[in-house]
């Protein structure tokens, strides 16, 4: 296939992705917000809108700010299709993002390319389907499974899913980018040690940590670029 044909195909695919993504996202929002009212009708009592508004002001605003940060940070990693899907299916930080990044590395594709968009979409869709299937099977088998999964001996394992994930990912990323990693890791360790109260806000601390890492990466990138230009 010629490059021109590929470009036309890609343009059409991207356009359809945005149309589909928007329509399906709107439908999902309608279903999610509509479900409590349908359930309320079923139970004979509709949601208390005053309490909902008060609750939103107490916890919702924090999550709204967090959602803006997540959108700005993760959309570039996931691309258009992966982005729509990831925000529909959730569980970004503990699963979808590491999963997509891992798939990207495995496939050897670069962020911002068509290949990355394809790989990211395949990865998020597969990951979401696996979660949906496991949750559905788990819900079906919930009663017999409960004693096993809730046994005290297994609780530490499930309480440490995220450290297990980030330990493995840290090795993969640090070994290739140790110069970028040292400062954020050191700064964050010192910060959390001196101000342990910040531990409950770790998801917000990703922003300064990421900004520091990006700053260092940019300095290295600029230096390399300048060096290459000087050689040429």
């Amino acid at each position: 296939m010629e490059q021109k044909q590929k470009d036309a195909l890609w343009a059409q695919y991207s356009k359809q992705t945005h149309v589909l993504g928007r329509v399906l996202s709107i439908l999902t929002v309608v279903l999610l917000l509509g479900a409590p009212f349908v359930i309320g009708g079923l139970l004979g009592a509709y949601p208390d809108l005053g309490a909902t508004a008060r609750g939103f002001l107490s916890v919702g605003l924090v999550w709204t700010v967090s959602s803006v940060a997540e959108f700005l940070i993760y959309t570039p990693m996931l691309g258009a299709g992966g982005g729509y899907l990831a925000f529909i299916t959730g569980n970004l930080i503990n699963m979808k993002i590491p999963c997509a990044v891992n798939a990207r590395d495995l496939a050897g594709v670069k962020t911002g390319t068509a290949e990355n968009e394809i790989v990211s979409t395949l990865s998020i869709a597969t990951s979401s389907l696996v979660t949906i299937v496991i949750l559905a099977l788990g819900v079906l088998a919930l009663q017999p499974l409960q004693p096993v999964l809730q046994s005290p001996a297994l609780q530490p394992a499930f309480a440490n899913v995220v450290p297990a994930l980030f330990g493995a990912m840290a090795y993969q990323y640090y070994r290739k980018n140790i110069v970028v990693a040292i400062a954020p890791l050191a700064v964050m360790s010192v910060l959390f040690t001196l101000v342990p109260g910040l531990i409950s806000s770790t998801s917000f601390m990703i922003i300064p940590s990421g900004a520091l890492a990006i700053g260092i990466a940019y300095t290295i990138y600029k230096k390399k670029k300048t060096g290459k230009e000087a050689q040429a």
Partner: peptide, 21 residues
């Protein structure tokens, strides 16, 4: 591409720093 990798390193560093702290 490098920026995305760096962002992910920042993310992992924040969490590992929180475990240490």
């Amino acid at each position: 591409d490098l920026a995305m990798t760096a962002m992910f390193i920042g993310l992992v560093s924040a969490y590992i720093g929180s475990y240490l702290g």
